[in-house]
């Protein structure tokens, strides 16, 4: 019994630890490594402006929408992801991307949830307008592998309640890549090489996993992950366009309200991570009171 109490206490400590802090730390480390070792084509000014614009936008929206408090964590994650992925020669574009990312959370909403992942939307807008580009091949093995470890670590450390969508997506995506290679008779080094994209990791661990833009139930999220993986691969190998996952996610995002309608569950709150289940309290006693609590106030982060 004592042991059980200790476990519950440890669980509570983990729960109190906001997974976003870990994410911010790993993204920042990666950005630093990219700048110093891999010579990413991103200037310090671009980083400053991206971060600054994102925080300012969040702050302005906090005032405008009268949110209880200014929370810099989510905009920081969006901005760091933008710094890692977006390449442009124009600082205005960097600022615009950060603005679109954060503002979209407040403007494009459906039943109290924002519809698009902020980073995803900003990247797609910039790509579509030809103002910037993404360099998915710039990572190299070392950075990729290191970042993979960090990402997997984040799942363990933070016990992210919604790792299912990440793991689901990666499972389907990797499985289908290997299936394709086997069908073509290609050596397996080819699908392994295709996985070696930093953009893919950021996508799987930081974009599609966003609890605010994924379906509320586990079944819904797994179905969503499968659809996105299929769309991503189709764009890559059927339409021969790079950045398949990004386009796939943006295209599939409008399906989330539909999945939520078909499979209703509880809304996500960053301070109270939950898998979205509204029944079966036996699985994790700590989750019982949390998963039942539906936030009273509108939350936008």
């Amino acid at each position: 019994m004592e042991q059980r109490n200790e476990r519950i206490q440890a669980d509570q400590i983990f729960r109190r630890f906001d997974p976003r802090l870990y994410q911010i730390a790993s993204l920042s480390t990666l950005l630093l490594y990219g700048l110093v070792w891999l010579h990413f084509d991103v200037s310090l000014w671009q980083i400053v402006i991206t971060l600054g614009t994102a925080l300012l936008t969040q702050y302005a929206a906090t005032c405008l929408y009268k949110l209880p408090s200014f929370d810099p964590r989510s905009p920081l994650i969006s901005a760091l992801s933008l710094c890692l992925l977006l390449r442009t020669n124009d600082l205005v574009v960097a600022a615009l991307a950060a603005f679109i990312a954060i503002a979209s959370k407040f403007v494009i909403r459906w039943k109290e949830k924002h519809l698009f992942n902020p980073t995803n939307l900003a990247l797609v807008v910039v790509l579509a307008s030809g103002l910037g580009w993404i360099s998915p091949g710039q990572w190299g093995q070392v950075a990729w592998f290191g970042f993979l470890i960090a990402c997997l670590g984040s799942l363990v450390v933070t016990r992210a309640a919604r790792a299912d969508v990440t793991l689901g997506f990666l499972g389907f995506y990797v499985g289908l890549l290997f299936a394709r290679a086997l069908w073509l008779g290609d050596p397996l080094t080819i699908p392994l090489h295709q996985l070696e994209s930093g953009a893919l990791l950021i996508f799987a661990f930081f974009m599609i996993s966003d609890p605010k833009t994924t379906p509320d139930t586990r079944t819904g999220r797994i179905i969503f992950a499968l659809i996105v993986a299929l769309a991503a691969l189709y764009i890559q190998f059927g339409l021969f366009r790079p950045n398949g996952p990004l386009w796939g996610l943006i295209g599939c995002a409008p399906m989330v309200p539909l999945l939520d309608h078909l499979l209703p569950g509880s809304r996500y709150d960053w301070s109270k991570p939950s898998s979205g289940r509204s029944s079966n309290p036996v699985v994790n006693p700590v989750l019982v009171p949390l998963s039942l609590s539906v936030p009273q106030q509108r939350r936008f982060s």
Binding site: H39, S135, P136, G137, Q138, G140, Q194, S197
Partner: peptide, 8 residues
Amino acid sequence: ETTNYRTV
């Protein structure tokens, strides 16, 4: 640039 290898 290449999308599946590092362009340096």
